[in-house]
Design a protein around this nucleic acid. Sequence first.
DNA 1: CTGAAAACACCCGACTTGGT
DNA 2: ACCAAGTCGGGTGTTTTCAG
Length: 272
Amino acid sequence: MSKRKDLKTANRYAQIIERIFLNHYTEGASEICFERKEIERVAQELHINLPKNLGDIVHSFRYQVTLPETIRSKATEGRQWIIRPAGRSRYCFVLVVEQDIAPTSMKAETKVPDATPGLVAMYSLDDEQALLAKLRYNRLIDIFTGITCYSLQNHLRTFLAGIGQVETDEIYVGVDQKGRHYVFPIQAKGHSDRLSVVQIEQDFALCVSKFPDLICRPIGAQFMGKNLIALFEFESTPEGVRWTEEEHYRLVSPDEVTPEVLRSYRERLPNT
DNA sequence: CTGAAAACACCCGACTTGGT
DNA sequence: ACCAAGTCGGGTGTTTTCAG
C-alpha cells in the first residue's frame, strides 16, 4: 500500500488481482468470475514472479487488505466488491451492498464478571484463541443469544459443493426453552483482521449442508480491547447477509464486580 | 468398485522486506 | 531500528488417481 509509487511498486498481489479484474470487467458488470489458473497466466503476462502461495492472494484481499483503487472505483455508490468462492479453484468478484462489519464506537457496554481461568488467560497463544476462550468460559454466546448453548467443536473445516473449502472458528449448539435446537457458527477476529460477509455467507451455507435440521444463527466476535468484546448476529436476506444485532461485553475482574453487575449478569444468563 | 496414496487447496503463523 | 505489509512454509481436509 505504498502511497507514492503505486504504479511502479504496487505489490504483486495487487497487480495480479487488478489485471484479472480488468480482463473480465465490462461496464455495469456485477459479477466477475475467474479461475486459479488465471493467476499464473496473468503473472506471466505482467512479467512478475509468480507468488508461491496462490491461495494467499485471494485470502489477503478477502480478510486483510482492501482491493486496489482501480477495482474499488468500479463499484457503484453504496456497494463494494467482495471475492466469493465458487467451487474448487474458482472465485467470483461480486458487487454487494457495502457493509463494514466493525464495532460501533459509542455503544453501551454490558459488564460481565470475568470467569476465564487465570492460567488460560496467561497462556493463550494468539488473539483468536484468546477470544474464543473468553467467549466460552464466560458463556457470552448464551448471554448474547438468550439460549443455552455449548461449544461443539472448533475449527471445523469442510468442503461445500459449489463453494469450496470453508472454515468456521468454533461451532456452538444450543436448545431453547421450547426445545428448539440451534447451531451457532462463530467467526472470531482479533484486532487486526476484519469480519467479512463472505465468511458469514459461508457459515450459512455450512449450516445448510451439515446441520440442516437446526436453526442457524451465525455470530461474529471481535476484540475491541483486551477485555472488551463485540458480538454480532446476522440474518440471511434475499439481498444478502445483513448484520442485525450488536452487543459489547466488558469482562471485569471478580473483585470489582458489584452485586448489581452480578444480578444483571444472572438475569441475562439463560436457565439451564 | 474400493481403498490407499498422491496431489491440490486453503488458512494460519512466522519470517522477510521495504519504508520511515 | 522499528513497524507494518508482503510473502512463504506447514498442517490438514478434500479430491483425484490408480492399482488390485
